[in-house]
Write a protein that binds this DNA or RNA. Structure first.
Lengths: 342, 342
DNA sequence: TTGTATGCGTTATCAA
DNA sequence: TTGATAACGCATACAA
């Protein structure tokens, strides 16, 4: 019932078999070839291959005070937005000899804190985090240990970490202008809870601002829904539909997750898009192309956000100061059938 | 331009401040409280809290020959099927003090081999892998080092690793019976390349077998499409439509990815589901509910597959022999509008 | 060009 | 109940 753990081949075995000292092998591993005689080098090379030796990264890390591990803490691993970013970050990691330690917090601040502690114990060389935005004690600690941190998507005002995201204000403004051109009587904004999540707040603020600036009749139609609670979205949706009876209307979804739930709810109500209700949402999930005559979306360069985050970490690891406090990519409005020819 | 790396607090610091030896602190860390005087224990506890000390997992791992790291190699991190499994595996990891090292191979055997080598260097305590199925040299090596491996979804005949997946044959058979009841003139099977991927082969085989068993006129309509090549799917689709002109027809999609591409293609062709063509697919992506009157799908217990995989790893780590060579969960046919009332 | 000795932070063995 | 010491696998300062 015990784990037997057979002894793995070590640098010592290689040294022994190659007839050199551990130091020389270590030099080879470090790529300091100028300090090694060509024949010795060849001998070590062959020995390593024949023994199938792999240097122990933990031992190396203990000595060098690095782990070659990058922590990636995400709020929702099921969200395609998240995986797209992971994909980008992972590619850059791989190109630079790092590996991603992925943690899924389910938007739970407590889990987030626990995970960050675990990652610290692993002595991660950097952290990319899509934070819950609440209760960021552990996150603050990282600054004290000066391990490189990059926030993705969501900012935390009280923390001075670099953040990478999109131009939410501009993206929403563009999209809203598109909606306003169509002269809807009512435009609603459906979002997950705003508390703590900067992205949602920025989008909601831009939404409201555009409506006011255009003297639009509806301004109060911001609905916060709790997707973990069955029926919450449907209730708010029915409320809005009742409120706007007989009026032309559109809904702006704060992200791809809310967007999908809205589409499903509308389908259950047998409402047609865009005839009964126009629909537009942040993120550009693949299925947006497949629903009806397509859903109008705001596409973020998710992969690039992921690569940029990891590249920023690399810069910090190298000791280069990065000056940009907030890097925002521009998003792109993709107009499809869900907001046109109604 | 150098990484400054300030010294972290170590067990030595704790011992010093608490006025005990490293050994005693180590005992505390190991939870051997019976060997410690209550007052000493309290003192250590307080010291650790005040210093915010976190034991270095690398150092511990070097000594204990463990890393608390589980490798997770996936073929396509963008696939919701994959993330659902990761979610399950990650939950079990977290409950047991392990962390997931996630690697995305993009279905590239070479990347898979490289990643496995990296993971070996990290001395992972176990590996969960959704393999490309080809060129599994590195995978074979792991057996030699006897690190626990569990294959997910795809089997590899030449390897003796435990595998966890679904009852593909039965699931396809059930679904096919549902289609056959509707008396379609033609039923086609759209899949990504079969080579090396056991799951696809099993599903295609079951598809064919049911058709033959029922003396169904169409049997040769198995189309392998290459999703990375623009237009490949559309070409095959047009070919099938041409072949089956004037006949009633259905398409069986091998997985959620192909299913989505089919929906998009059909929408581009302005074909209506299920009037012009019925559609059914493996996996049950969330959007399946949102397209038309819903897409009929075969739902896999993905989360459970993930947890089962990780639990199997844990058993192996504990040294328990696991006897089941192949564990298959049952899938569930969810009938929706895409295959009914045409 | 190569080797010896030391230490990274932790656990384990042994002794007190 | 506690502590001194060695060892895990590797990299590095210093010698040769």
């Amino acid at each position: 019932m015990e784990k037997p753990q057979l002894p793995r081949v070590t640098i010592k075995d290689v040294a022994l078999k190659a007839g050199v000292s551990k130091t020389t092998v270590s030099r080879y591993l470090g790529g300091n070839y100028k300090e090694i005689a060509p024949k010795t080098r060849k001998r070590i090379e062959d020995t390593i291959a024949s023994l199938n030796y792999r240097p122990n990264i933990m031992a190396r890390g203990l000595k060098r005070n690095t782990s070659n591990l990058i922590g990636m803490v995400v709020a929702d691993i099921s969200n395609p937005y998240t995986t797209a970013i992971m994909r980008g970050a992972e590619d850059i990691c791989n190109q630079n000899g790092y590996n991603l330690l992925v943690c899924n917090t389910d938007n739970d601040p407590e889990k987030e804190n626990d995970y960050i502690s675990m990652l610290q114990a692993h002595r991660i060389d950097g952290l990319i985090i899509n934070t819950t935005g609440r209760n960021n004690e552990a996150l603050k600690d990282l600054a004290h240990d000066d391990i490189p941190v990059v926030l993705v998507d969501r900012k935390v005002p009280s923390l001075e970490y670099d953040t990478i995201g999109v131009e939410n204000h501009r993206a929403v403004t563009d999209a809203m202008h598109h909606l306003i051109e169509q002269n809807f009587d009512r435009i609603a904004f459906f979002t997950e809870p705003l508390a703590g999540v900067s992205t949602r707040k920025e989008r909601a603020a831009a939404f409201e601002q555009v409506l006011r600036a255009n003297g639009h009749p509806s301004c109060q139609d911001i609905y916060e829904v709790d997707l973990s609670s069955e029926g919450s979205l449907m209730d708010k949706l029915l409320f809005f539909l009742e409120e706007s009876k007989g009026q032309t209307k559109a809904i702006f979804a704060v992200n791809g997750v809310v967007l999908l739930q809205l589409v499903i709810a509308l389908q259950q109500l047998n409402l047609s898009i865009p005839k009964d209700l126009a629909l537009l949402g942040f993120d550009n999930p693949e299925w947006a192309l497949a629903v009806g005559s397509g859903i109008t979306t705001i596409e973020q360069p998710t992969y690039e956000i992921g690569t940029a985050a990891m590249e920023s970490i690399l810069q910090k690891i190298k000791g280069n100061k990065t000056f940009s406090q907030y890097t925002s990519f521009s998003a792109r409005l993709i107009i499809r059938g869900s907001t046109t020819n109604n």
